[in-house]
Amino acid sequence: MSRLAWIPVGIVLLLLPLYLEAPWLKAGQYMMIGAVGAIGLTLLTGQAGQLSLAHGFFLLVGATSYTVLAGPKGDHLGLGLDPLISLVGAVAISALAGMAFAPVAGRVRGIYLGVASLSLVFLGLYLGQAAESLTGGTSTGRDPATFKLFGFPFSNEGDLVVAGVPIRGTERIWYLFLALLALAYWLARGAVRTRIGRAWRAVRDNEAAAAAMGVDVRRTKASVFAVSSAYAGLAGVMTVLWFDILKPDESEYGTYGVNTSIAFLAMVIIGGLGSVGGAVIGALVVFGLPQVLTLYSTDLGWFTGSVTPVLVSSFVYGAAIVLVVLFEPGGLAAVGPRVKHRIRELRS
């Protein structure tokens, strides 16, 4: 997208809270969580060619770190730090957790790595249940601290009115998430175009050739794991703020489980492996669809009994993965340029 095209998009996103009801804003926020996480995964899997099913685990690391760093001292372990510092700290801790996986990531390739990374999800499941002083445990969970920016709370506290619309917690969180997503997007776009992005792609395409050009393959893999985990950690912080609770999973199919890892992988595949913009589009589909279907569920009247919005969305993204691999390996990100190309061909 050209730079000018961003201006109307930005204006619309900034104005939406003035027009949309809270449930719609919540749905939008959820998509933004997906987008941040998916950008991280597309760097790892798409740019650097390392399959990971551990994204759900790093979400949990970020979520728990924020809650512990910002949490009050009390029943659970809490350091009572400033929320902004806690957010940055949680992202840093997630990056370190990703780095700690480097001995495995550096040795094990491709699909092997994907399966190896699955073990982190199971580790997270166990630790989430066992470390109650950090996570609050599966039965009650734990309340995260309200996010504050230099004292300004992202909750319903205090009166703030813009153009006659009260800007309450939901609206404030919208702007917070929008800012975080914009930052995450901008950093990723910049990085893939420079030295580190070239090193990632070289490692993906041919490790021997990358090394012959002076790229330290192990270090590069460790670094991309760290970056990807940092994104997942940020998405994890956003997740606890969105749910307003940290609750570890009871089974491997939960907020931080295998299914979540697969959902992120689906976003990245559907959007087009390696495409930062595509990851955002993929998140709109995979995280957006269940939210939007739920909001429309009464109007649609489709969802009776066992057919739920979540189920329908799973079918859609499952099928989307199959179709993308079969027919459009570049994902949705490649559809735009292809259509443009076809139109140009038809004209001439």
């Binding site: 910049g190 030295r195 580190i196 070289a202 395409d205 050009m213």
Partner: peptide
């Protein structure tokens, strides 16, 4: 052993890897 989806320039620039500096943050922050 080149990257087929990247441009020639992008491929050739990989050769500058050891002569340049900067990781994710430096690149991301322009």
């Amino acid at each position: 052993a080149l990257s087929p989806h990247s441009t020639v320039l992008d491929n050739v620039l990989l050769g500058r890897h050891a002569l340049t500096r900067g990781g994710f943050l430096a690149g991301g922050l322009r």
